[in-house]
């Protein structure tokens, strides 16, 4: 497993390299430019000042040189400063990534906690009232737009019942109780939709597994039904579920601009969105690179988890 992990980490290098090249090229294609963002209306057409700022920010050099300079510094851990706030990019990311990771992990955790039992029970009690309820609920979850569900949650739990805050963020390192209090609604909004997908997937995986011969064998050997279901069948059925949950988590860690806006959640989605609008190259580059690393690492962890769930799965 160690060799496999090292190999996978080495494979990340070309992936991340291509990612940075694509991102750098993509940013150049955006309409407008950073000088228009930095400069006021009064001097927007002043060629001297524009040239000065281009030089000041190193934008007067050919794109491949700019990229080379950026890459050289990034390899030494220096992502530069935001062109807009002039704070180190590391600080900008450090402020927003934890909030996103926190919401993503809890949201996915919540979805798994809901989906695994619900999907399993629906499969075991196929065509029962429980199954139909689970299917209808998950269908609703998939059909309802995430932002609408979030708004409904705010109206119900914040405005009408007054149980939960409607928006805001408290770091778990500052005050865990308050942090969880502010997290419940955003995590519910994230988790409900993800749970809907995962429930349906778990149910269908379980049904597939339950029709396999090893399940009949286990039953014929006299194992109890809970043992057959939860020790053998569910374990094998989890592989696609884990795959999808991993992808969902990676997707969430990329930021959810709409949910972050509804809950005034200071996450990476808003940060990168604004950086793109402002053409804040260093922040866009570093943000996407860090997110790329997170996605690759999550995928690696998912692959390693296969092996934990089923030792017969060959790694490599």
């Amino acid at each position: 497993m160690l060799v496999y992990t090292i190999n996978r980490i080495l494979q990340m290098i070309p992936v991340l390299f291509v990612l940075t090249v694509v991102t750098f090229s993509f940013v150049q294609l955006l309409p407008g430019d950073v000088i228009d963002t930095l400069i006021g209306d009064e001097e927007a057409e002043d060629p001297e000042l524009r040239a000065f700022l281009m030089k000041e920010y190193g934008l007067d050099k050919p794109i491949y040189i700019q990229y080379g300079i950026w890459l050289g510094k990034a390899l030494q851990g220096d992502f530069g400063k935001s062109l807009i706030t002039r704070r180190p990019v590391g600080v900008e990311l450090f402020e927003s990534i934890p909030a996103t990771v926190y919401l993503g992990l809890v949201g996915i955790g919540l979805s798994v906690i809901i989906a695994l039992p619900l999907g399993s029970i629906a499969a075991v009690k196929r065509n029962s009232a429980t199954d139909y309820t689970a299917q209808v609920t998950s269908l609703i979850g998939i059909s309802i737009p995430e932002f609408w569900f979030a708004i409904m949650c705010v109206i119900l739990f914040s405005l009408h019942l007054g149980w939960l805050p409607s928006s805001g963020y408290v770091s778990p390192f500052e005050d865990l109780g308050q942090s969880l209090y502010y997290l419940i609604l955003p995590a519910l909004a994230v988790g409900f939709r993800q749970a809907a997908y995962t429930t349906r997937l778990t149910r269908s995986s379980m049904l597939d597994e339950m029709n396999k011969e090893y399940v009949d064998t286990a039953r014929s050997l006299g194992f109890s039904e809970p043992k057959v279901i939860y020790k053998y069948t569910l374990r094998n059925a989890l592989i696609p579920t884990i795959t999808i949950s991993g992808l969902q988590l990676a997707n969430l860690l990329g930021g959810t601009v709409v949910l972050e806006t509804i809950f005034a959640w200071p996450g990476i989605g808003q940060a990168i969105y604004l950086a793109i609008i402002d053409h804040d190259y260093p922040l866009i580059q570093a943000g996407i690179l860090v997110l790329g690393i997170i996605v690759v690492v999550v995928n690696l962890l998912v692959d390693l988890l296969y092996r934990v769930l089923n030792p017969r799965v060959a790694l490599g």
């Binding site: 705010v154 805050p165 409607s166 928006s167 806006t261 509804i262 005034a264």
Partner: peptide, 18 residues
């Protein structure tokens, strides 16, 4: 200062006492 970009998000935060 609590930046909340959307008008309705701010209004809801006021109504809920945040």
């Amino acid at each position: 200062g609590r930046p909340k970009k959307e008008d309705r998000v701010r209004l809801t935060a006021l109504r809920t006492g945040e």
